[in-house]
Simulated assay, not measured.
Amino acid sequence: MYQRVLLKLSGEFLAGEGGTGIAPEATENLAREIKAAREASGVELSIVIGAGNLWRGTRNGASMDATTADYMGMLATVMNAMALQDALERQGCPTRVMTAIQMSQVAEPYIRRRAVRHLEKGRIVIFGGGTGNPFFTTDTTATLRALEIGAQVVLMAKSHVDGVYDSDPRKNPDATRFDTLTHRDVVDRGLEVMDMTAITLCMDKHLPLVVFDIFEPSNLQRLLAGERVGTLITSA
């Protein structure tokens, strides 16, 4: 169904039950799921990962200069990218970390053509360092990178939530899940899929999204194989 995709992960996925830090077992389990899905589908796979397990500017840096707090968050995404790269490569998956903030000792600088070439050669590319600018979330980073590399879809991985609901299903047992939505529906209903900058960019560029539960066994593999999983968000 897809030839090139971008997978958006939360940093908390690396933390396990503790919720903070990087848990080796949780990171290994995530890497195994990604490897199995990629090998079964043969897609060109890129990843953007957040840093909520290590740093949140709005919480940890509440008393700091906002720009400084955001840069610290961007650096934290590189730490997560390196941890995921290590886990993937121990599973036998060739992986490259590219970052918008130059740190040549640990990652390649983000260059669009080089990223595309890595994908064409069968390497998983993990984008760290956000956009390289403060005040933009990793949701926006995922949208920008997906558009730049020509990804056909952004896969928004969630933890134990199998799509988009009209209210929080963990608080409201009567919440209704949507099978499909439009970008405009997400904006008009105020649904918490991704930040407003990211969703409006997806809407403007007609970039589809799929919101799904990555912790449901084989969900990612089924999705890449073309099965309907989670909630599909399109322009029409």
Score class of each variant (00 low, 15 high):
Leu84His: 00
Met103Trp: 04
Val43Asn: 00
Ile111Cys: 04
Thr231Lys: 04
Ser235Val: 13
Phe13Ser: 14
Ala23Pro: 00
Thr176Met: 14
Glu12Phe: 05
Leu14Ile: 05
Leu54Ile: 12
Glu33Tyr: 02
Lys8Asp: 09
Val106Ala: 14
Lys121Leu: 15
Arg96Asn: 11
Ala146Cys: 07
Met64Asp: 12
His118Tyr: 14
Leu88Thr: 05
Met98Ala: 13
Pro24Asn: 07
Arg56Val: 03
Glu120Ala: 14
Asn219Gln: 12
Ala146Asp: 05
Asp86Leu: 10
Met82Lys: 06
Leu209Ile: 08
Ala69Lys: 03
Pro24Ser: 09
Gly42Met: 11
Val43Leu: 03
Ser10Gln: 09
Val48Phe: 07
Gln152Glu: 15
Thr141Glu: 12
Thr131Tyr: 01
Ala23Asn: 15
Ala157Thr: 03
Met72Gly: 03
Gly150Phe: 07
Gly163Thr: 04
Ala151Thr: 00
Ile199Val: 15
Cys202Lys: 02
Glu17Asp: 12
Arg59Ser: 13
Lys171Gly: 09
Gly52Asn: 09
Thr200Pro: 02
Gly230Ala: 05
Arg184Leu: 15
Pro94Thr: 05
Arg222Leu: 12
Asn53Trp: 05
Thr68Pro: 00
Lys171Arg: 11
Asp179Ile: 11
Ser10Gly: 15
Gly42Val: 07
Leu201Lys: 08
Gly128Lys: 05
Asp188Arg: 14
Ala100Arg: 11
Met203Phe: 12
Gln85Ala: 14
Ser167Pro: 03
Thr143Glu: 05
Ala36Pro: 00
Leu201Met: 15
Thr68Lys: 09
Leu14Val: 05
His118Glu: 07
Val5Met: 10
Met103Thr: 12
Ser46Arg: 01
Val116His: 00
Arg117Trp: 09
Tyr71Lys: 11
Arg117Lys: 15
Val229Met: 13
Thr176Ile: 14
Pro208Met: 11
Ala151Leu: 02
Ile199Arg: 03
Ala31Arg: 00
Leu54Lys: 00
Met72Leu: 15
Asn53Ser: 09
Ala225Gln: 13
Val186His: 06
Met203Lys: 14
Thr182Glu: 08
Leu191Phe: 06
Thr143Val: 15
Phe127Thr: 03
Asp179Gly: 12
Arg170Tyr: 01
Ile199Ala: 04
Phe127Gly: 04
Glu17Tyr: 02
Met64Thr: 04
Arg32Phe: 08
Asp195Pro: 07
Leu88Glu: 04
Phe212Tyr: 15
Tyr110Asn: 08
Leu7Val: 06
His206Val: 13
Arg114Met: 13
